[in-house]
């Protein structure tokens, strides 16, 4: 099995040019096939046209999603009803025991509460900061440089980001030269004995959130800035004629115009926050009362091999986001009704 695999790879191995050629072939081939499908389907008119379009545009996506996410999701639910060790030949059903564990185990329960805190604070702050920057740089000269700087953290990998923040939060005996920037700053400001930040609950959780906000603000800024740009100048001008300025203009004209985008950004960041575990994983490993659901899920499955418990947490994660889906559904309904 490996041999055939490797013959293919060996052919690609040394030769970068052939790898890039493979990319061009793949992407080119993909687009060519689409072009042919479009060409052929374009000949079809009349009653069949609509259903054919639906099939062409939706089937690949739906199929890929069924294979890649729906089946694994069902499998996860199945695993969540089974014993801790799903590796062995004997898989035993345990009913809802894993769920009971998740809601009764005190440390897991506080993890659930902490996750909710993350879900509220991170999207709000990141979107707020992103919106602020987007508003401020709207039509500002040299804005792209400022935007690039705020975008920069988004481009740093999670692990890279976590490492630098770990150094920022580093604790060293206050009588010695400091390695952590945060301690250095507060000492300079006159706080003689700053605590070991990562040990001090609940401050540590908020400090970890700062990392996520730092990363996500770039995303919020890029998308919101784009949305702000799309507001026709005429509308703003008209509002100005009516006497709206500064904050009022922002509240009564700009925000409603980009409302939909705001919801999208908040939703996206919320889901990203729900899923991210790299930060907690790298900085504290979930210790000192900083654990979040996604990290606990990852640890249960991948370091402790508690497939059942980990899967139950994954299902809870999924359920936790259903209200969010519901809210978006309502929004979208309203949107469509108004059209």
């Amino acid at each position: 099995m490996y041999d055939s695999h490797h013959l293919i790879l060996a052919g690609l191995a040394g030769d970068s040019a052939s790898k890039l050629w493979g990319v061009i072939e793949a992407v080119g081939g993909f687009i060519a096939i689409l072009a042919i499908i479009f060409l052929v389907a374009g000949k079809v008119t009349g009653r069949l046209e609509r259903p054919l379009t639906i099939v062409i545009c939706l089937v690949p996506v739906v199929l890929l999603l069924i294979i890649g996410l729906v089946i694994p999701a069902i499998r996860t639910f199945y695993l969540s009803l089974h014993g801790a060790d799903a590796y062995g030949p004997t898989v035993h059903s345990v009913g809802f025991q894993n769920y009971r564990w998740a809601f009764s185990d005190p440390s897991t329960r506080s993890t659930l509460i902490r996750t909710v805190l993350w879900l509220v604070i991170v999207p709000a702050v990141a979107t707020g900061a992103g919106l602020l920057v987007a508003l401020l740089v709207d039509n500002m000269k040299r804005a792209s440089l400022a935007k690039a700087f705020i975008f920069l953290p988004t481009a740093v990998s999670f692990v890279g980001a976590s490492i630098i923040w770990k150094y920022i939060y580093n604790y060293t005996d206050p009588h010695r030269p400091q390695i952590g920037l945060l301690s250095e700053i507060v000492i300079k400001l006159g706080w003689k004995n700053p605590p070991d930040w990562m040990l001090s609950s609940p401050v540590n959780t908020f400090l970890l959130m700062v990392i996520m906000v730092w990363i996500q603000t770039g995303f919020a800024m890029v998308v919101l800035s784009a949305a702000l740009k799309s507001i026709p100048d005429e509308i703003i001008e008209a509002a100005r004629m009516d006497g709206a300025t500064g904050y009022r203009l922002f509240r009564s004209v700009q925000v409603p115009m980009i409302r939909n985008t705001l919801v999208v950004v908040i939703t996206t960041i919320m889901i990203a926050t729900l899923k991210v575990f790299d930060i907690v994983y790298t900085v504290t490993g979930g210790n000192f009362n900083t654990d979040v659901l996604s990290n606990e899920m990852y640890t249960q499955i991948f370091t402790q091999f508690n497939y059942g418990r980990g899967s139950a947490l994954a299902v809870i994660l999924f359920l936790a986001v259903l209200p969010l889906v519901g809210y978006n559904v309502l929004q979208m309904r309203k949107e469509r009704a108004s059209r």
Partner: peptide, 15 residues
Amino acid sequence: FALQVVPLQMSLVPL
């Protein structure tokens, strides 16, 4: 939309 929440770690083994 809701499928966004499925942790991709859960997909590795089936895939």
